[in-house]
């Protein structure tokens, strides 16, 4: 499935366990807020870019795309602080935001979805106390991953069927006409999948 932000490479960053990378991200997030100065923010940003491009050999375009996604926010925050407080605070806040977002992007690009799902399942293990079974969470995740392309495919099929019968395909009315049969169809599907899984002993897992 191409629906992932993972970039396959053989680098030390890629080989690092997913749990460790998440922990580093968490620590980084705390540190930049505890030390809210411009040099600290710039240092963090530099380190993140070095790790991402140097150690993990990620494409520059990927980091640029992530940076562009928050550029508007960063600019708005900078302008607000330049007017309300001072330019230095504005720069520090904007750079801090950029550093954090890029750090998270590096973790995401260097860690497989399956590895992160495994971390989620492990993190959920303590919830056993409340009667939550981690395996059930894994099952729900696996189903959701499968349902994303399936829902899109069903939507396409209904839209084509309606277009073939002369239905309009644009506007809010067309959206309602599309989503009602789509919801009913996929709710029935989910019901069937649930029963099929139970018939194969999923409820005892």
């Amino acid at each position: 499935m191409t629906l992932a932000l993972y970039v396959p490479r053989t680098s030390p960053v890629h080989r690092l366990p997913a749990g460790v990378k998440l922990l580093v991200l968490l620590v980084l997030g705390v540190v930049v807020f505890v030390v809210p100065t411009l040099p600290a923010a710039l240092g963090t940003l530099l380190a993140v870019v070095l790790v991402g491009l140097g150690a993990a050999r990620l494409p520059v375009g990927l980091l640029l795309r992530q940076a562009r996604a928050v550029a508007v926010w960063a600019a708005a925050i900078f302008v607000f602080h330049a007017l309300a407080t001072d330019v230095l605070t504005g720069a520090a806040t904007a750079v801090r935001l950029l550093a954090l977002v890029l750090a998270a992007a590096v973790v995401t690009a260097t860690t497989r979805v399956t590895a992160l799902v495994a971390v989620v399942e492990r993190l959920c293990a303590p919830l056993r106390v409340f009667g939550v079974r981690p395996a059930r969470i894994g099952l729900a995740l696996a189903m959701a991953l499968r349902f994303v392309p399936l829902v899109a495919e069903r939507a396409d099929r209904i839209r084509e069927a309606q277009a073939a019968r002369g239905g309009r395909v644009r506007g809010p009315r067309a959206l309602v006409r599309l989503v009602v049969p789509l919801l009913v169809s996929v709710l029935q599907l989910a019901h069937t999948v649930g029963e099929a899984l139970d018939a194969r002993g999923a409820d005892t897992a």
Binding site: R136, L139, A140, L141, M143, A144, L145, R146, F147, V148, L150, V151, L183, V186, L187, L189, A190, H191, V193, G194, E195, L197, D198, A202, D203
Partner: peptide, 14 residues
């Protein structure tokens, strides 16, 4: 129930 899990997964996917 597993059916509820499927519903949950479905709306996450939706």
């Amino acid at each position: 129930k597993t059916r509820d899990l499927a519903y949950i997964a479905l709306f996450a996917a939706l």
